[in-house]
């Protein structure tokens, strides 16, 4: 996904003089050719994430469309107040593109993990959040984000599903259960594990790469009673959205995702999936326990 981001953003910089890119060393070498061609619009501020977001706010104030990129914990967690004030409070937007996700960098430890990024955007409101599950879903999301001025977060990851599922971000049914079957919603790269987990169960599985704004209309059309959320970031991030959408009808909700605890463990992303119950076996346990 990262290479897809580099290729697509480089093309946008070539094609659209409104597009700018602000970096804090991460991925700077990948954008070196673009920086040579567009030295005034490809800006590497060094390892200065507060400045990276401040510069993005200033660029946006002059009418440019800044893309801002780093590891998720650095572009979101570390620069949270700049996101809140240098973009949101000034009434301008940007396209924030992260890599690393919840624990792609598990072998680097907790400092490089950001399971709480999407929840942080929920504290601000107004952000579109894309969590693509396949590299081929990425270009269209980036190109669309370049055409307007609203705030957009694109959460890239090394995890991916076997096949892309493009679309406008609305809930897309990939496995149809009976008419009153429980609804399982898989976000981004957890789709394949989710499909594996529910094999043989009578459930409907719907996919989205765009949890914000959440497809509330699609949810209401599909939810018959029991709802399961499977999200690749902090467990419960979308619980409030789903609960608010279904206040007028009886339902049960199970929210699966990354746990809150700092595990103080390295290992691979697959290890962390297992520890957080987000591999197919763990999801199967949680979902069948909930539906029993």
């Amino acid at each position: 996904m990262r290479q897809t981001f580099v290729d697509t953003t480089t093309a946008l910089l070539d094609a659209d003089p409104r597009t700018a890119l602000v970096l804090a060393d991460i991925s700077a070498s990948a954008f070196a050719p673009a920086a040579v061609r567009h030295p005034d619009r490809v800006l590497n501020v060094g390892i200065r994430e507060q400045l990276m977001l401040g510069v993005a706010g200033g660029l946006a104030l002059t009418g440019l469309r800044p893309f801002v990129h780093s590891y998720a914990p650095f572009v979101v967690d570390r620069a949270y107040e700049q996101i809140k004030l240098d973009l949101g409070h000034q009434g301008v937007g940007a396209v924030l593109v992260s890599v690393g996700a919840s624990y792609d960098g598990s072998q680097m430890g907790r400092t490089h993990m950001s399971p709480g990024d999407v929840a942080l955007f929920d504290t601000l409101g107004g952000w579109t959040v894309h969590v693509p599950g396949h590299p081929d879903e990425v270009p269209a999301l980036l190109r669309a984000a370049a055409t307007h001025d609203d705030p957009v977060y694109v959460r890239l990851t090394t995890a991916q599903n076997a096949h892309p599922h493009a679309g406008d971000g609305g809930l897309r049914v990939l496995r149809q259960g009976r008419s009153d079957a429980p609804l399982v919603i898989a976000v981004g790269p957890l789709l394949d594990a989710t499909l594996g987990a529910v094999e043989g169960l009578d459930v409907t599985v719907a996919y989205t790469h765009t949890p914000r704004p959440f497809d509330v209309a699609g949810l209401r059309a599909l939810a018959a009673g029991d709802v399961v959320l499977v999200e690749p970031y902090l467990a419960g991030t979308s619980s409030a959205v789903v609960a608010a959408a279904l206040t007028d009808r009886p339902h049960r909700l199970l929210s699966l995702g990354v746990g809150h605890a700092d595990l103080h463990r390295y290992g691979t992303p697959a290890d962390h999936d297992r520890w957080h119950g987000l591999d197919a076996a763990g999801l199967r346990r949680s979902i069948s326990g909930f539906l029993r």
């Binding site: 700018a20 401040g54 510069v55 104030l61």
Partner: peptide
């Protein structure tokens, strides 16, 4: 008023970005 401010330490970064944005547009 060009920026909303109050929390200290935000204006200079925004100013750097504004200067860069003007420069990128030939201003």
């Amino acid at each position: 008023v060009e920026i909303g401010s109050g929390s200290l330490g935000h204006g200079l970064g925004l100013g750097v970005g504004t200067a860069l944005g003007l420069r990128a547009q030939g201003l």
